[in-house]
Design a protein around this nucleic acid. Structure first.
Lengths: 205, 205
DNA sequence: TCTTTTCTTGACCATACGGTCAGGAACCGC
DNA sequence: GCGGTTCCTGACCGTATGGTCAAGAAAAGA
């Protein structure tokens, strides 16, 4: 019986294999996109047989959705950690640095989301509305309060957030391009210094 | 006989149909990615039959590569238009605005490139090295000269370029997300004002 | 007009892919 | 050790997809 049974805590094997599958799927989906990924690739990558994959998940789409949902929390955590009581400039800079770190630490997750959004968010659209939007609205209000209090330079809070996302995730999503253009240089360190300077200049009242 | 014949100027019909195909392919590839796109979709979208598509192109991959190569020039044109003799700050701001305009005007092209790069640039990698890198190197040198002359704030020129690309293309590549978060607001105008202010603050010596 | 070349297509093919199923193997409480 | 449940797989199926081909329709020369 599969996981459809309502009350049944997952066995040791179940936990291990679902993790194997999701990890393999993250690898494959993030590099080939949803349509480009195949169950065979995921199975091989996970070290399991294809029917076994379908023993744990009802189909390809469920794997993808499970991944996206599970990752959403991790992905938004840094924004949730912005402290309304902290120093505005330092809080936002900390957020920038945390996002950049995540770009380096979880590039596959970043690309998974990027792939999904670029293609019109066909499978995660509802979750954007329900999960992301409230958080962004709240954070925007917080930023606007800081600006009104003269703690930050005046600007559109949502566009500021877009700029932070864009500049930090760029290093994960466009890594192939960055690698070509930067060669052997210390990309990570350079990016950190650049973004710190950039947002410091931008936000200083 | 197909286009492999070396010396043969394309007929009227040939020109029209190749254009139809490439335009349809841009639409389909940019929204579904390379693997997600099918020849049938492209054929339907172009109003031609599938075998007819394959009369003009040897296969799916050739269509994709032709698209990428043909678009590269258009895509890099704004960077080529930066005037070394112009006012540094205004030249770069003009570049930012031009890139943002292209995001609005050619979102499909932007997503096509984004898809390709995210997946590791498997089909355009060589062209990045040969076409993009020299131009970026040259532009970086120009920027560094301006910085050394005290016309711009000091920073890493390559990371500056990344920041410009990331923030402007974000509005095309992540349009689905922006739409959810901004609702009916005037995204275009807000983005223009925000990026102008942002890079002005950043670059002012 | 007649001929040659270019263009177009319906029918077809081989493969790849998502998914199913019957039955066997491994695990687990007893 | 035994019975029942969970876990696993080889073989298989229907469909979608990239691509081919022979032959007809349309243009283009002559």
């Amino acid at each position: 019986m599969n996981t459809a049974s309502p009350t049944r805590k997952p066995s040791r094997i179940q936990k291990r294999n679902r993790k194997l599958i999701l990890d393999a799927a993250l690898e494959v989906f993030s590099t080939h996109g949803y349509r480009g990924a195949t169950l065979d690739q995921i199975a091989t990558c996970a070290g399991l047989s294809k029917p076994n994959i379908l023993y744990y998940f009802t189909g390809k789409e469920e794997i993808h959705i499970t991944l996206l949902n599970g990752l959403m929390d991790t992905w938004l955590a840094p924004m949730r950690e912005i402290d309304p009581e902290g120093d505005p400039l330092e809080e936002i800079l900390r957020y920038v640095h945390r996002k950049l770190e995540m770009s380096r630490e979880f590039p596959r997750e970043s690309r998974l989301f990027a792939n999904e959004i670029i293609q019109g968010a066909p499978r995660i659209g509802p979750h954007l509305e329900a999960g992301l939007k409230p958080l962004v609205d709240e954070t925007s209000t917080l930023f606007e309060g800081w600006m009104a209090a003269g703690k930050l330079a005046q600007m559109d809070a949502r566009h500021l957030i877009f700029s932070i996302w864009a500049t930090t995730q760029h290093y994960a999503d466009f890594a192939a391009q960055v690698r070509v253009l930067m060669g052997e240089a210390d990309v990570e360190g350079g990016a950190r210094a650049h973004l710190d300077m950039m947002f410091r200049r931008l936000l200083r009242p």
